[in-house]
């Protein structure tokens, strides 16, 4: 084995080590008898349940619908949040109108809105998506706002000197210059989107992995519940890695330290 490959293998092992230790601790705790076996299923039982779920087409349908609700809500959040943040950064009027609202709702847990949304929108995808939209709105607004507010004056001036009209500055300078900040906002919003979609499904849906987890939990099928959690964690992880890799492709002009990890 070459030195490079050996190094890569060691790097991979050291990354997997925490997961291996976690699973070992879990298995030890589950088999120790300290916790009743039906409350904490063993790693083995969860793996079995996961394989079982993996063979079931209806589980993929649930995963698909959860993914649709998360990403659909995320898109809505972006479509509203990015223009709102940009508007607040460039216009004192827009900032005066929405700034106080953003500050006031900053620390509000958006899950608190789910019962209200359920009342308005009923059981189904709309409630989950709107809940996701509300919770992803703020990261988009805040990161876009700070990104644009932090664009060096000198870049704006040099574009103006080269003939860029005031109204085209947003497209030509402000948005590209704050791309790194907006993509950071996207990554944070993506994390929220899965959490909120699952939470909304538990309360206000008849389908989706959230509902499935809720049913398994209610009926005491904890091995299947943990399997569903594992599947959604894996899905969220893959979505995050895809986001990071697309972001870094888009930011290839930027300094390495400004890219996403």
């Amino acid at each position: 084995m070459s030195a490079g490959a050996l190094f890569a293998a060691r790097a991979l092992l050291s990354r997997l080590l925490p997961f291996a230790l976690f699973l070992a601790a879990w298995q030890a705790l589950a088999t120790s008898g300290l916790i009743a076996a039906n409350f904490l299923p063993s790693v083995r039982a969860v793996a079995g349940a996961l394989i079982d779920l993996g063979a079931s087409p209806s589980f993929y349908a649930d995963l698909g619908i959860t993914l649709w609700r998360s990403l659909g809500g995320l898109m809505l959040g972006a479509v509203i949040g990015i223009p709102l943040g940009a508007g607040m950064a460039v216009s004192r009027g827009v900032d005066g109108l929405f700034g106080p609202l953003v500050k006031a709702t900053y620390s509000l847990p958006k899950t608190a809105l789910i019962p209200l949304l359920l009342l308005w929108l009923g059981v189904g995808s709309a409630t989950s998506m709107v809940a996701v939209m509300f919770s992803t709105l703020l990261p988009f607004v805040v990161y876009t706002y700070h990104g644009i507010a932090g664009v060096p004056q000198i870049l704006v001036w040099s574009a103006r000197a080269m003939g860029t009209a005031q109204r085209r500055l947003l497209w030509k300078v402000l948005l590209p210059a704050s791309l790194q900040a907006i993509l950071t906002g996207l990554r944070i919003a993506l994390g929220f989107s899965f959490v909120i979609a699952i939470a909304a499904e538990m309360i206000a849906a008849n389908t989706g992995v959230g509902k499935l987890m809720f049913i398994y939990g209610e009926s005491g099928a904890y091995d299947y519940m943990f399997a569903a959690v594992t599947a959604i964690v894996a899905l969220a992880f893959v979505a995050d890695r895809i986001t990071v890799s697309i972001s870094n492709r888009l930011l290839r002009w930027d300094d390495i330290e400004n890219r996403l990890g």
Binding site: I154, S158, R160, A161
Partner: peptide
């Protein structure tokens, strides 16, 4: 009355657009 293409400006810190080649 404002910036114009008759006047070219070269700034201290170059002010190149970092996202453009």
């Amino acid at each position: 009355s404002g910036p114009g293409v008759d006047r070219g400006v070269v700034f201290q810190e170059y002010a190149l657009f970092p996202w453009l080649s």
